[in-house]
């Protein structure tokens, strides 16, 4: 049950997207987001959709889990669509009933907004979370933020904390499962009663969980100490990241698309084709 919660799902693979440098993937994601927010006309929306479909194809990811990633933001999508449908004013009135006015423009805007959000979520998750292992991701972040070391920001420590946090999520889920089972065996009931009762029923799970987390953190600190961990200064890495030709090709294409969208916005500013 609790094990079913998926967090930052990484799908191991060996596609072109998987092989991109994590630093470049983070940069690409930022450029991609800019690209999505620049899109304003029908042609650029089509281009945006096409880009996401292409990403999905070359990443060789299964379609189902990618689509499942949209589920958590379904509320935002529906909310955006409703707001746009009812509150956009235009020239082509479609429905008029009491205080409700629905314009063709509203429907179109709602459609574009939904498309934009879906593309944003699936595009960035294909580029980053689905195809980059958490370790690579934190490595990438660390190296991208490396210049901040100049102003005495503890970049390495920050990324180490992040890797450790990510590493222990599955362990904690397993631990929670175990403790919940143990308390259930003693008659705990987590599923019935009022909200307050249920919250109270969680105390016997949370306290042992806190205790064991602190113990685990202490053990880990000792283990790191034993292996002479002294933070980032003078530390070399087993896997050093190197940009390859492929990374620059992707960057080039993405920047080109951005430029394309700007040009389309200027020369083809139509909403309907």
């Amino acid at each position: 049950m609790i094990r079913d919660i998926t967090l930052g799902q990484f799908f191991p693979g060996n596609s072109v997207i998987h092989r991109l440098d994590p630093r470049m993937k983070i940069i690409l994601t930022v450029v991609f987001i800019v690209f999505i927010f620049l899109a304003e006309s029908a042609v650029s929306y089509a281009l945006m959709f096409l880009a996401v479909v292409l990403l999905l194809i070359i990443s060789k990811l299964p379609l189902k889990p990618v689509l499942r990633g949209i589920k958590p933001i379904m509320f935002i999508i529906v909310f955006t669509a409703v707001i746009n449908i009812f509150w956009t004013k235009g020239d082509h009135l479609l429905v008029e009933w009491k205080f409700i006015h629905i314009y063709a423009e509203g429907l179109l805007f709602a459609f574009y907004m939904v498309l934009r959000i879906v593309c944003l979520i699936t595009g960035t998750s294909i580029l980053l979370t689905y195809t980059t292992s958490p370790i690579n991701l934190t490595d990438g972040i660390e190296q991208l933020l490396a210049p901040l070391k100049k102003i005495k920001l503890p970049v390495h420590e920050f990324s180490m904390m992040m890797s450790i946090a990510l590493r222990f999520i599955p362990t904690l889920i397993e631990e929670t499962d175990k403790i919940m089972n143990a308390q259930k065996a003693r008659g705990a009931d987590f599923t019935s009663g009022s909200l307050l009762r249920r919250a109270k029923a969680l105390i016997p799970v949370l306290i042992p969980l806190f205790v064991s987390s602190i113990r685990r953190a202490d053990d880990l600190a000792t283990a790191m100490e034993c292996r002479c961990y002294r933070g980032g200064s003078g530390r070399t890495r087993m896997k050093s990241l190197k940009y390859k030709a492929l990374d620059f090709i992707f960057l080039f294409i993405t920047v080109l698309m951005c430029a394309g969208v700007v040009l389309i916005n200027i020369y083809l500013p139509v909403l309907v084709v």
């Binding site: 403790i179 089972n181 143990a182 065996a185 003693r186 105390i203 306290i207 042992p208 064991s212």
Partner: peptide, 12 residues
């Protein structure tokens, strides 16, 4: 009644 493995971690 079930006593799980390492039951000391369930004390609260």
């Amino acid at each position: 009644g079930l006593v799980m493995q390492y039951p000391e971690y369930q004390l609260f």
